[in-house]
Design a protein around this nucleic acid. Structure first.
Lengths: 349, 349
DNA sequence: GCGCTTTCTGAAAGCGATTTCCCGGCCTGA
DNA sequence: TCAGGCCGGGAAATCGCTTTCAGAAAGCGC
């Protein structure tokens, strides 16, 4: 009878083992492998040879513990499946790859308690930096809880950067010029002759939403056009949220000639809703979004939007967080969006 | 004159500090916080109180070192910005969130050496499991290097699962039934009356590509339809790759009545290419893809495709890798795709 | 040839937890 | 009442590495 199948669980190769087969002390082995100090050439060769003969892989935990350094950063976003976050995350990954840092990515799925939980885990991991992507949560209690997590982390030497989010704490920030962008978009839409607008807005009092809405209003106001409150419909920051909001807007009537969705993702839903209501875009109704996520170029018609350099913003956030020397002041990188007029908006009449 | 701004760099709160303020030994503090052993209720309360008074956050590295356990898993994919990977990653994240594990996510940007490098880093981190998402690299040398990295990891007790990828090693696998799916798609297209096909295929000899191609051919063959080699154009696994391949296919003429792109992402590019060449889909040419990434439902026309439960596959991969007890045999979870006929394919006149 | 740097190397002390190991009470049964 | 268990808690070893600290060897000027 044969033994039950075994999992031999070979122990890991340690630095001591490497040192022993190389015939040097662990101290020397460490120095040789890390290049911390000059080591006699022969010993260096011997250590290296031993290391890859044994297939030595340093234990990152031991390294982190001993040296109080660490090669990981954390990223917290709402959902990687959302193209907006995916694009930003991709930029972060690119920068991380160049720096040789490992990224711990967490999706909150829009649950504030998860954001806090993850932050705590990242603190436990002693992540060099934490990036918070996307708007925060409306509830001031959660924001306070977040700050309570963030403050000691910062004091402990952690770096924090946020993207598209306002913080009360002084942390590095990558911030789209939402107001200006939306205002510019409004002007572009006005230039097409539109006067009757509708807006699909995001949830609650997210600053991103508030800014884009305010900017849009301001752009209209410059031309003396007013946006009635009834013309603004709130929805979730998702494709389906956009669909619902657009449907609601149509239900409310009278139908605007042009609709602005505060994010492209919502605009995607809106486009579907309009179609399902038998409306042609842009002939019957124009539609514009914000962000310029890659997929909107593939829509029919391609979406007019305010383009944000999403992957660049991701890069910038990590670069900001990990910059050396660490400046005394936190930095704010302002990103100006660029209006891209595409076929989803047409001139009226 | 004021001091230059300082970064006081407060030291971390350690378990010893907690133990001291609670008036117990570190051993007891550890036991109290982890619930490893019964601890007298009063001590337990004192320790807990001390811990959150001081804002104690355990050092995950010390924990990992001491207990040889670890709460992180690694995921290696090609690019999170690709909706295919984003969807899978989202499923992984969801499962990870429930389990309280932290995910280290790495994008190779399709560079094989980066895949190896990341795997090595994840080994150093002693990740409990590593998930490899998406097809491997053609080069057998790289695959060998990968196995050389994987083998000791497995021996060391690491878990590995792969998604949409064939491994020579015995690792858990989530594998779409590419052949069957493509064959089913072929039958559906034949049922629409198509006989002249073109295929936009992926790079080199990726098994995913080979299987889908073979399945498609087989499905056609059952009806006595042959697909000439000249009707198969290779392109990169990207939107632009699809665009190029589609353009090349048209250039080669005579134009097929129906085109199958081996991935939806490529199909998106193909759709744009057809449009740019003045062709209407599906009136002039039908188009089908594979994967059913969310965005294809938003296209005009919505894309006929073979639907894969992408986020479910991500979940399954993590669940497979972390299942307890660890079975002696590796498991293969076969995913059957479901043909979804949408408006991008029409019956031929 | 002698003292004094400079270089290189090894011994040993941490880093911050977990986990034996062990001991002192207290409970139980005879 | 006493031996034997059980239970809770402290001391100390341990995880695998980095980094002082100090010593040995080598180089140098006088």
């Amino acid at each position: 009878m044969s033994e039950p199948h075994r999992h031999p669980q070979v122990p890991h190769v340690t630095l001591d083992a490497v040192a022993r087969t190389a015939g040097v002390s662990p101290a020397t082995a460490s120095r040789a492998l890390n290049g911390t100090t000059r080591v006699r050439d022969e010993l260096l060769r011997r250590v290296r040879a031993a290391a890859d003969e044994l297939g030595y892989i340093p234990n990152a935990h031991a390294q982190a513990l001993a040296s109080a350094s660490n090669n990981t950063v954390g990223v917290i976003c709402h959902d990687v499946a959302d193209p907006y976050f995916a694009a930003i995350a991709s930029g972060i990954m690119a920068s991380a790859a160049e720096r040789g840092v490992l990224v711990m990515l967490a999706s909150t799925f829009r649950a504030p308690e998860r954001e806090i939980a993850y932050l705590s885990m990242l603190r436990a991991q002693r992540a060099r930096a934490v990036l918070l992507i996307g708007s925060g949560f409306q509830d001031p209690a959660w924001e306070r809880a977040l700050d309570a997590e963030l403050t000691p982390y910062l004091r402990g030497g952690g770096r924090v950067a946020v993207v598209s989010r306002h913080r009360s704490l002084r942390v590095d920030t990558v911030l789209p010029e939402n107001r200006a962008g939306a205002a510019a978009l409004a002007r572009a839409l006005l230039a097409l002759g539109h006067r009757q607008f509708g807006v699909l807005s995001g949830p609650g009092r997210l600053t991103t939403v508030a800014d884009r809405l305010a900017g849009f209003r301001q752009g209209l106001a410059e031309a003396g056009v007013r946006l009635a409150d009834g013309r603004v419909v709130e929805g979730a920051f998702t494709r389906d949220g956009g669909y619902e909001a657009a449907s609601e807007l149509l239900r409310r009537g009278p139908r605007p000639t042009c609709v602005f969705a505060v994010t492209d993702v919502m605009a995607v839903g809106a486009l579907a809703a309009f179609r399902d209501h038998g409306l042609r875009v842009p002939e019957d109704i124009s539609l514009a979004g914000f962000d310029d996520i890659p997929l909107v170029r593939e829509l029919t018609p391609p979406l007019t939007t305010v383009a944000l350099p999403l992957t660049g913003m991701g890069r910038a956030a990590l670069d900001l967080a990990l910059r050396e020397p660490r400046g005394p002041r936190s930095r704010v990188e302002r990103i100006v969006g660029e209006v891209r007029v595409r076929a989803s908006t047409a001139a009226v009449g």
